[in-house]
Simulated scan of single mutants.
Amino acid sequence: MLANHVLFLDGEALVIDKPAGLPVDRPRDGSISLENHLDGLKFGFKRWPVAVHRLDRDTSGCLLLSRNPKAHARFQQAFEQGLVRKRYLAVLEGIPEGESGMIDLALGKTSTAEDGWRMRGDPAGKAARTGWRLLEVRDGRSFVEFTPETGRTHQIRVHAAEVLGAPVVGDPIYGSGGKHSLLHAASLTVPREGKDPIIAEAPLPARFVEAGFTL
């Protein structure tokens, strides 16, 4: 039950720690998604909460949901204006050069019959910027903190693979795949006019600890 995963709750906002493997949008095959859990996240309201942004199926961590339409519009504006601060943690297959930096690589969508669709670096694509900082290196893998300034589809995953040369461990599209994708939305801060900001932190999942990385 996702009611046990609540990180923040008030009259207009809800932040949950989304489990890895749970898609935000309903898959075409009709399998379980966030929608199947929304009834249990009403907390006394008649209306289901609505996801304000997206996390990939295999990415865990902070997901913001609005509890009324007016709040939803304000939160969307905050995301679009770049006011929301997001922090991700990832284990990468490989070790990037340097200790930290800012990745500035525009992204575009490509599709082939063999591989399906994916995102890739494309000068004619949409601007995408991601700050990164190396936290730890162990056994040929690196533990990295990412702070994206934009919110493009698969942004961190593509930037890690194409620019840092070290894809996210377990990434089925840009890496070698595997049992678990080690990408986690660790914290989220959303400013609100006239109110305290929404601040949420999601604990590091067990799959990171099992891979040998802790904070």
Rank of each mutant, 00 (worst) to 15 (best):
M1Y: 06
A3R: 13
N4Q: 13
H5S: 14
H5L: 09
L7F: 14
L7N: 15
F8H: 14
F8W: 13
L9R: 15
D10G: 12
E12L: 05
V15S: 05
D17T: 04
P19M: 10
A20M: 11
G21Y: 13
P23A: 11
P23R: 01
P23L: 06
P23M: 07
V24W: 01
V24M: 04
P27N: 09
G30K: 12
G30F: 14
I32N: 00
I32D: 04
I32R: 12
L34I: 11
E35L: 13
E35M: 05
N36A: 15
H37P: 00
D39S: 10
G40D: 08
W48G: 00
A51H: 00
A51N: 05
A51W: 01
V52C: 06
V52T: 06
H53P: 12
H53F: 03
L55Q: 03
L55D: 06
L55H: 01
R57N: 06
D58K: 12
D58P: 10
D58C: 10
S60A: 15
L64W: 00
L65D: 10
L65V: 07
P69D: 13
R74S: 09
R74K: 10
Q77L: 12
Q77C: 09
A78R: 15
A78V: 10
A78Q: 14
F79V: 04
Q81Y: 03
Q81S: 12
L83H: 07
V84F: 01
R87A: 01
Y88E: 02
L89S: 00
L89V: 02
A90R: 03
V91E: 01
E93N: 15
G94N: 04
G98D: 09
M102R: 15
I103M: 14
T110C: 07
S111H: 08
T112K: 06
A113R: 14
D115V: 03
D115E: 08
G116T: 15
G116I: 14
W117A: 15
D122H: 13
D122F: 11
A127V: 11
R129D: 06
T130F: 04
W132D: 02
L134K: 07
E136D: 14
D139W: 11
G140I: 04
E145L: 02
E145I: 00
E145S: 06
E145Q: 10
T147P: 07
P148E: 10
E149W: 09
E149N: 02
T150A: 06
T150P: 04
T150D: 01
G151R: 07
R152P: 05
T153K: 12
I156R: 01
V158F: 06
A161M: 06
E162G: 13
V163D: 03
V163L: 13
L164V: 00
P167D: 09
V168H: 08
D171W: 08
I173E: 11
G178E: 03
S181V: 15
L182I: 08
L183F: 08
S187G: 12
T189F: 07
T189E: 15
T189V: 15
V190Y: 03
P191A: 07
P191Q: 01
R192P: 03
R192Y: 10
E193V: 12
K195E: 15
K195P: 00
P197V: 13
P197Q: 14
I199C: 07
R207S: 11
F208E: 02
F208Q: 02
A211F: 04
G212K: 04
F213H: 04
T214V: 12
